[in-house]
């Protein structure tokens, strides 16, 4: 399924990347170095204001780092290079936190899910139909969902639609911004299961921004902890969450509310 690349080349890589808003001295994220290798899912963990969303925008090619680089398949990502960006957009897709704002309320689900295929020039409206049906089936939605509008679906179902859209063009990397935090607990578990299934079956590499450590632990092999725009600790998830070295990580792990034994 996944195109076999040189095993040593990370799909996405950030080196010493910083980002500051124009006219603002303090960078939102600073000196970030990350490697995302195929099949090795990464969680970016942090609390509000840690710079998680900015980091995601850099990785999505929606913003350019003020210093440092973002590399895709070994080449520096150039937002002006149309051919590279087309390849990049096909390989890297995104799921958002809020399943209400992430689906255009005036479009049918079929049109929403097929948007990447049509925009990337892979398919037209007609030839996209079977792929859309397949993508919807994969996320566990009924076949007639394509004909309906987003408001006819619950939050969990809407997040499934968003996942169908993000996986319809067979990307290698799925960037997810708090993909389950807006969902109820029972729904949350089901969507986590779905993401884990997509990882296993389709060799999808997941890069997930989250504040929820249990979700991180369920889905990602690697974890990087962000505090105020800097990475304070990164490595194997078991290592980072099981034996945190940094005091902030330790505080984070200890703060997770637990069920009574």
């Amino acid at each position: 399924m996944t195109p076999v690349l040189d095993a040593m080349t990370p799909v996405l890589e950030m080196s010493a990347a910083s980002f500051a808003y124009r006219g603002s001295a303090a960078p939102v994220v600073e000196d970030i170095s990350l490697k995302i290798e195929a099949g090795q899912s990464l969680a970016l963990v942090g609390e509000s204001g840690a710079g998680k969303t900015t980091l995601l925008r850099l990785l999505l090619g929606l913003a350019r780092p003020t210093s440092g680089t973002v590399r895709f398949d070994g080449d520096q990502l150039n937002l002006r290079d149309r051919r590279q960006m087309r390849r990049f957009r096909r390989s890297v897709q995104c799921v958002f936190q809020d399943p209400y704002s992430s689906l255009d309320p005036r479009r049918r689900v079929g049109s929403i899910v097929s948007e990447p295929l049509r925009s990337l020039g892979v398919d037209d409206r007609r030839t996209a139909v079977p792929k859309v049906a397949e993508a919807l089936e994969r996320v566990g939605l009924p076949a007639d969902a394509a004909e309906r509008y987003p408001h006819e679906f619950s939050g969990g179902q809407r997040q499934r639609i968003a996942i169908a859209r993000a996986t319809v063009c067979d990307p290698r990397v799925l960037l997810a911004d708090e993909p389950v935090s807006a969902l109820d607990v029972t729904t949350r578990v089901k969507v986590v299961d779905l993401l884990s299934e997509l990882k296993e079956e389709r060799g999808l590499t997941l890069v997930m921004v989250s504040h929820d450590l249990s979700v991180v632990a369920s889905l990602c092999e690697h974890t990087a902890v962000l505090e105020r725009g800097r990475i304070v600790e990164q490595g194997d998830t078991a290592q980072v969450l099981g034996a945190p070295v940094d005091p902030y990580t330790r505080c984070l792990v200890e703060s997770v509310p637990r069920l009574p034994a």
Binding site: V185, T186, V189, S214, A217, L241
Partner: peptide, 27 residues
């Protein structure tokens, strides 16, 4: 949490447990 009687409560507790157990496994 230990012994939910109703089906819905069982689902709720199971979901919470599943997420939490991932945390324990990892750590």
């Amino acid at each position: 949490v230990r012994a939910p009687r109703e089906e819905y409560t069982r689902a709720l507790v199971a979901s919470a447990r599943q997420l939490e157990s991932a945390l324990d496994l990892r750590s």
